[in-house]
């Protein structure tokens, strides 16, 4: 589903991601772990298309997407949530999700839609909100932190991605909220490929089927959660910070 070959992303002299190769199968739940600055979010940005690698190749669903823009990749089925809540705070929660629904249906730039189409879009958006347990009414800016993170998830799912990139979905959540999120993530459709960057290792091991560990921009371990947890390099990287 997703293949990275020797991908390098530089910020000036710093190689934030240094010749990273990895391969994610369809339906896999892959976690990216590693200490701060390991390059996890940069890998996500490169996969989503927000950052261009200086070298290497990114294939998605058998297609070279290395040179495609972020909107093009989104339309091919790469969806993402952001590390820092990235909501349209002035819009209602329903409208936040409806923006994604209209984009997926290719109706995002229509000047006008008939009433029937509008109702259909609103129903679909409301369905995504119900699934993530967020109330559709009221401005997104008024949500609590945990609700905001769930709205993020609803917005990403509303685009019906084939690959979903979750960047620290549990950041700032309480233990209870995080557990609730874990059960929501486990309930995602099995054919959806999910990559997750997360510091909350309980959540990682509750959700992930495979784990890739990064440190200083390089892959230091790749395998089942148990294998990665037992890896001496991983233990060293985590103890070292």
């Amino acid at each position: 589903m997703l293949v990275l070959r020797e991908v390098t992303v530089r910020f000036g002299a710093l190689a934030a991601v240094d010749r990273v190769s990895l391969s994610v199968e369809e339906g896999e739940r892959r976690a990216l772990i590693g200490p701060n600055g390991a390059g996890k979010s940069t890998v996500f940005a490169a996969v989503a298309g927000a950052l261009r690698p200086v070298s290497g190749r990114i294939e998605f669903a058998g297609r070279d997407v290395t040179k495609l823009s972020e909107p093009r990749r989104a339309r091919l089925g790469i969806g993402r949530t952001f590390q820092h809540s990235s909501l349209f705070t002035g819009l209602t929660c329903l409208e936040n999700v409806a923006l994604a629904v209209r984009a997926r249906r290719g109706l995002g730039l229509r000047a006008w839609l008939p009433r029937g189409r509008r109702a259909e879009i609103e129903r679909e958006a409301a369905g995504h909100l119900a699934a993530t347990d967020v109330s559709p009414d009221g401005p997104a800016g008024a949500l609590s932190h945990g609700q905001g993170r769930r709205l993020e998830l609803a917005m990403a799912l509303a685009a019906r991605p084939r690959l979903l990139l979750l960047d620290e979905p549990a950041a700032g959540m309480s233990a209870a909220e995080s557990a609730e999120l874990a059960s929501m993530l486990r309930a995602l459709p099995p054919e959806l490929t999910v990559m997750i960057v997360e510091h909350d290792l309980d959540l990682v091991f509750a959700v992930a089927s495979r784990v890739t560990a990064l440190a200083a921009g390089q892959v230091i371990a790749d395998g089942t959660p148990a294998q990665v947890r037992a890896s001496p390099e991983v233990q060293k990287a985590y103890l070292g910070t």
């Binding site: 989104a74 990235s86 730039l109």
Partner: peptide, 21 residues
């Protein structure tokens, strides 16, 4: 309409709009 919502969306949050496609 939808275009107006998209226009407001790009004002509020470019990164998210690009991620939507």
């Amino acid at each position: 309409g939808p275009l107006g919502a998209a226009i407001a969306g790009t004002r509020e949050n470019e990164a998210r709009m690009a991620a939507f496609g």
